[in-house]
Design a protein around this nucleic acid. Structure first.
Lengths: 109, 109
DNA sequence: AAGTTGGTTAGCCATGTGGCTAAGTAATCT
DNA sequence: AGATTACTTAGCCACATGGCTAACCAACTT
């Protein structure tokens, strides 16, 4: 689990990879199609794809000479859940601080 | 903005740093207190703190020889929002696929 | 003043990262 | 069969990363 969060957050830490994820949410795409909108050498781009695949965020299937890339939504969900939990803890704490401030306002001591 | 997401996701990509964030949601803590629960050399640990600070996830204040670390929730929120938006796109797409499947089920063509 | 505590700086290490070019293989098209 | 297309492998680069030790400075305690 900790390893999954590591690899998912790390994969999301690059704008090229985030753009790839955004594109794939519209549907599977070939490496060439994905690459076409990025101004970098193909081997470099493939490294990004590889990182997304290693993080479990995408899967790929080679058919003939074409490799199609498919999104996998669950790992991203794990990252969102972690962040969401922290936000809830934070908001809960703010609520308690607010309540304490109001109490002190009524009962200055 | 893209730089903020880069640095926040990158900061979250390490278990030590996530643990620090989780602890700080309970309230500010000194470097020493934070460090006490991690089995690594202090200079190494301070590098992690530095990375969180550079990502805007924490701020620090030195008083005398003690440095207190405080959480900053907004950058984490930005990361959560990005992930949340992708999930919504994904869920919307699943809904459309489901509706299509149901249509085809009723009108096999 | 001496000792202790809390943090800082500097340098090291092996590995990883985001790019590059060059060369190669396999699939497809003409 | 030759040319083109879609990837793949290999090696390079400068810099970053997650740790280490050693030495140091400042604040605090005794």
């Amino acid at each position: 689990m900790a390893n999954q969060l590591d690899s998912v957050f790390s994969a999301m830490a690059d704008p090229t990879r985030r753009a790839v994820i955004e594109r794939l949410l519209d549907g599977p795409a070939s490496v060439s199609d994905l690459h076409a909108t990025h101004d970098m050498a193909l081997p470099s781009f493939l490294k990004h794809i590889r990182k997304l695949e290693d993080a479990g965020l995408v899967t790929s299937q080679k058919t003939g000479r074409t490799r199609m890339i498919h999104i996998e939504a669950a790992p991203m969900r794990a990252a969102e859940d972690w962040l969401s939990r922290q936000r809830k803890l934070w908001e809960g704490r703010l609520d308690r601080l607010q309540a304490l401030a109001e109490t002190l306002e009524r009962n200055p001591q």
